[in-house]
């Protein structure tokens, strides 16, 4: 699951490492860290927003370890992927390393490929894929589309996007 946490750190050096290391120790995958030095809480601590991917079963353990090390966990929430888009790719999808193509999206931390179907008619013919990308918000979705457009361009894949204007139907 993707988790977003607001932690409160003491305003002394070394605190961020203190907060991040238990996440790594529990094999969490840190996606983003937003550190706001200027915005102190009334308690004099500095709020930090961390988004990471982690096995749900170790979440309690993580919170416990953080608090033991003096880091206050102010908020824990599951980060939902709120915006998604359907796409079709045509070209030498497999030969051009589909794993890498997907990884370019998944590794952003804010978007991932949540659905993928492939159709390969013959070894010498171009293949086609339908995929759905989900992201944490509209802005993130746009960014992930830009990344994929660039990848498609470099790998000589035709990328078919949905109509843009008012595409909800009606």
């Amino acid at each position: 699951m993707i988790v977003s946490m607001t932690l409160e750190l003491k305003d002394i050096p070394g605190q961020l490492v203190l907060a991040l290391s238990p996440i790594s120790e529990l094999h969490g995958n840190i996606m983003s860290v937003v550190h706001q030095h200027e915005e102190k809480t009334p308690r004099g601590t500095i709020p930090v927003q961390i988004t990471f991917e982690i096995d749900q079963r170790v979440l309690d353990e993580l919170i416990e370890r953080l608090e033991k090390s003096g880091v206050r966990v102010a908020r824990v929430g599951e980060e939902r992927l709120r915006s998604s888009v359907s796409l079709v790719l045509i070209g030498h999808i497999i030969h051009s390393d589909i794993g890498d193509t997907i990884d370019r999206i998944d590794s952003t931390g804010f978007a991932e490929v949540v659905d993928l179907s492939l159709s390969m008619p013959a070894i010498d013919r171009t293949s086609s894929a339908y995929l759905v990308i989900s992201a944490t918000g509209e802005k993130e979705l746009k960014k992930s589309l830009e990344i994929l457009r660039d990848v498609a361009d470099k790998k000589d894949l035709l990328m078919i996007e949905p109509i843009r204007l008012n595409s909800e139907g009606a």
Partner: peptide, 24 residues
């Protein structure tokens, strides 16, 4: 470059593929 397979995948997901002109 459009393949019948791409159209079929789109169709399964309730889309058609059209050559669209877009200004805006």
């Amino acid at each position: 470059k459009i393949t019948p397979e791409a159209l079929e995948l789109a169709s399964k997901n309730n889309y058609v593929v059209k050559l669209i002109c877009e200004a805006g």
